[in-house]
Amino acid sequence: MSFNSYLNYPDPIVAEAAQQLQQITNSYQQKQMSQQEYDELTNDVLNFQRVIQLTNDVNRQTEVYKIFQQLLQIVMTVKSFVV
């Protein structure tokens, strides 16, 4: 599981979130930040309230929501592997 498949996603909301998460995850894996910092930053990126502010298109919101759930799974997996 990785963010690679979302980095060039056609929807810029998804692509930007994936890029930010990849950078945060890399820092966390290299132990450059604490778990608390990792949690806060990933929550910021995956805050769905942000998406609601960005678009009024309900179909787009639904699609982004589903992808954000997948991204959250990757974030949680990374967290479980870093001791």
Binding site: S27, M33, E37, D44, V45
Partner: peptide, 20 residues
């Protein structure tokens, strides 16, 4: 104090929000 990586990522997230 927070880590440098936290600062870099946090400010990037805030900047991208403000840009939008």
């Amino acid at each position: 104090k927070p880590s440098t990586a936290y600062c870099i990522n946090k400010t990037q997230i805030i900047e991208s929000e403000l840009r939008r």
